[in-house]
Amino acid sequence: MKKLMVMLFALLPSLVMAAGAKVPLDAANNDLSDKASLQRGAKLYMNYCFGCHATQYQRYERVANDLDIPVDLMRENMIFDRDAKIGDLMTNAISTEYAANSFGAPAPDLTLVARVRGTDWIYTYLRSFYADPSRPFGVNNVVFPSVGMPHVLEELQGVPSKTYETRLVDGEEVQEYVGIQSDGTGELNDEEYDEAVRDLVNFLEYSGEPMKLERQNLGLWVMGFIVIFFVLTLLLKKEYWRDVH
């Protein structure tokens, strides 16, 4: 029985992810080598997300150095706690109890969300809010039904709504969901909003693994070394066994 419970808990994350895979996900196509995109994403995150969601496994100084943001500019525009130091972890002031009472559940830390959910899931999720007067914050989400989070990017996107297309199925007209459409009252048009979300997702992917590009580059050097070492080993083997054969 104990082993069965362990197996069920081990499978639980994969089952949860599988349940969320019913909604087709759009490709984020973000680029970790694009420093300008990462800088814009960091700005969006700090202004629209950080009030509730910390990235407590990141440090302000590390982000500034990695993204080529001058330390003075980081301290002046992206550190809202005036008592915080540039080397501090990126925690916010909202308490777990307050967040739970306000949103129904504590606001999760987002440092590793891209590694848990995947960039395509986050990209699609942030573009799938729609107006729903029955919900506490007046919005719902196609990817995450009954979401407890408000649409914090609404001022950028405008008021989004579901769009449907009438199709004939077995001779009957059926309303089929085709996507989300903004009413145009946001600061950005559809293409600009998608690009802003992509920048935000880019920053979240960076936060989950700041050394990803360095690791990948190091991996290429290691693979190159292995190939060269294999060739030298093969030549040495032939030299040693030449007289035997």
Rank of each mutant, 00 (worst) to 15 (best):
V6G: 01
M7T: 06
L8R: 14
F9I: 03
A10N: 04
A10M: 13
A10C: 05
L15M: 15
G20Q: 06
A21D: 14
K22W: 11
V23Y: 02
V23S: 00
V23W: 05
D26K: 15
A27C: 03
A28P: 08
N30V: 11
N30S: 11
D31M: 08
L32E: 01
S33Y: 07
D34A: 08
D34N: 15
D34F: 02
S37N: 03
Q39R: 15
Q39F: 14
R40A: 07
R40W: 11
A42S: 03
A42Y: 14
L44M: 08
C49G: 08
T55L: 12
Q56D: 05
Y57S: 01
Y57M: 07
R62P: 08
R62D: 06
R62M: 08
N65I: 03
D66F: 14
D66C: 07
L67Q: 13
I69C: 04
L73P: 10
R75D: 10
M78R: 06
I79L: 01
F80W: 06
R82W: 10
D83N: 14
A84F: 12
A84C: 03
A84I: 00
K85W: 09
G87E: 04
G87W: 03
D88P: 01
L89P: 09
M90H: 00
N92A: 07
N92E: 10
A93S: 12
T96D: 08
T96I: 13
E97G: 05
Y98V: 03
N101W: 10
S102A: 15
A105I: 08
A105S: 14
P108R: 06
D109C: 10
D109W: 03
R115W: 03
R115V: 01
V116D: 04
G118S: 10
T119Q: 08
D120I: 11
D120P: 13
D120N: 15
I122Q: 10
I122D: 06
I122T: 10
Y123R: 02
T124C: 02
T124Y: 07
L126R: 02
R127P: 13
R127A: 12
S128T: 05
F129D: 06
F129S: 04
F129E: 05
Y130A: 11
A131P: 03
P133W: 01
S134H: 00
F137V: 02
G138V: 10
G138K: 15
G138Q: 11
V139Q: 09
N141W: 11
V142A: 14
V142G: 09
V142T: 15
F144W: 03
F144R: 06
P145K: 06
M149P: 05
P150N: 01
V152P: 06
V152T: 09
L153R: 05
L153Q: 03
